[in-house]
């Protein structure tokens, strides 16, 4: 029979748990993607699946260990002056609790290795390829008219660029449903090209040719920013991407080309 004191404690704990659940429920719509923002590329979806898988294991481990800790704290409070049994260890247990983490990490490693291989696939040679120049403190996105992707015959020679400033954040445009390659360049310091909805970032390193590929699977406008400290206005190195249907993309390119100011002949 629990004492009334104990009952009161249990009631309080119940109240606390319900309050916590309520709090979680109230903020959960904001974190529908298991904490991550909406994935907008095929690659991001794979990474999110890996994240969810890892998170489930992590949460399970957390509750198991934290639960055991709480149990031990409550159950084995000092009740008498009698000495507890002096156990110095157990080789069998040590082997078990070394093996279990090894199995868990091998599982996680294998899965993450597969995802890594898939998200780092190279771009097909006819894919749209955009050169991204990071500089203190904005971005320049350069399109090569000969590499606009999707079997489009090269319209003409030359390039055009979207150039931002810290005050005037650049917006670039990509088509949905086809691979797009980003080639990252920097001439000053290291930046990092990070778009949360890609679930991906890659550093923009002077002297390195870093590139990656995404295939967007939905349209919309999304915001990214520099993720590597690059100086005083690092926080203002934001950019926007508009993902649109192919036809709209072609129209946009035509507009850019028509605006001769941004087109440079080779």
């Amino acid at each position: 029979m629990p004492s009334t004191g104990k009952l009161r404690v249990i009631r309080r704990v119940n109240l606390l748990i319900s309050a916590a659940l309520l709090a979680i429920a109230s903020i959960s719509p904001a974190f529908a993607g298991w904490g991550m923002p909406e994935p907008i590329t095929d690659q991001a979806k794979r990474i999110q699946d890996l994240w969810v898988f890892t998170l489930i294991i992590a949460v399970a481990v957390f509750f198991a260990v934290e639960g055991a800790l709480l149990y031990a704290i409550i159950r084995y409070r000092k009740k008498s002056d009698a000495l507890p049994k002096q156990t110095h260890g157990s080789t069998a247990l040590e082997i078990v609790w070394t093996t279990i983490p090894v199995l868990i990490v091998i599982t996680l490693f294998s899965y993450s290795f597969i995802v890594l291989r898939d998200v780092e696939k190279k771009a097909p040679s006819d894919a749209l390829s955009i050169e991204v120049d990071g500089f203190q403190f904005s971005w320049q996105f350069t399109y090569d008219l000969a590499r606009l992707g999707q079997g489009q015959a090269p319209a003409q020679e030359g390039t055009f660029s979207i150039i931002g400033t810290a005050a005037n954040e650049p917006t670039f445009v990509i088509p949905v449903g086809e691979p797009v390659e980003f080639r990252l360049k920097s001439n000053d310091v290291i930046h990092s090209f990070y778009l949360p909805n890609f679930h991906y970032k890659l550093d923009v390193v002077p002297g390195r040719d870093n590139r990656f590929v995404i295939t967007a699977n939905q349209t919309g406008e999304f915001t990214g920013q520099c993720a590597e400290l690059c100086g005083i206005n690092h926080a203002l190195m934001r950019f926007h991407v508009r993902v649109v249907e192919r036809a709209e993309f072609d129209t946009w390119v035509a507009e850019q080309v028509a605006n001769k100011a941004t087109v440079r002949q080779p």
Binding site: I47, T54, A58, F109, S112, V115, Y194, H199, K201
Partner: peptide, 18 residues
Amino acid sequence: INGTFSAAVPVDFAIHDT
């Protein structure tokens, strides 16, 4: 536990430097 996420390289692409 939250350190292991960075060991899963693709997840690290998302959470690194955040």
